[in-house]
Amino acid sequence: MTKDRNRGITHSKWFLPSFSFVLGLVILAVAWLGGHPGEGAYGLAGLTAFGLFFLLAGRSETIRGLRGDGRDERFAQIDLRATAITGLALLVALIVAWLVAIARGQSGRPYDWLLAIGGLAYLLAVAWFRWRG
């Protein structure tokens, strides 16, 4: 009942494996363009193995939730919290890296740009959800 409302491509067991494989292909193509296809092949192999692991890993709630086919409202909440913590960790890492670069007499690029993008995305998201909600 509650799950059906949220059904979509991201709720298929093929979502994460397919995404991993396509990302691997993109890495291979980009590495090829950059003149080092061997590294791209490693990337494709690693991401394909990662996707296959999740496809064949069984029916545990965590695996099914991460894979897509076991997502319900509780897992969506877990996913949201985990994403927020990931964003916070990235933000802290960027601030530290930016400060270290400044202290070393460097320009602070590209950390300042990444921080600006993060801050802007946050403000736009707040404005959007405030308007919607």
């Binding site: 009942m1 319900d72 509780r74």
Partner: peptide, 12 residues
Amino acid sequence: EAMGVSRQTINS
């Protein structure tokens, strides 16, 4: 199954 959620969600 009837609610369309995981067994772990009911348990929680």
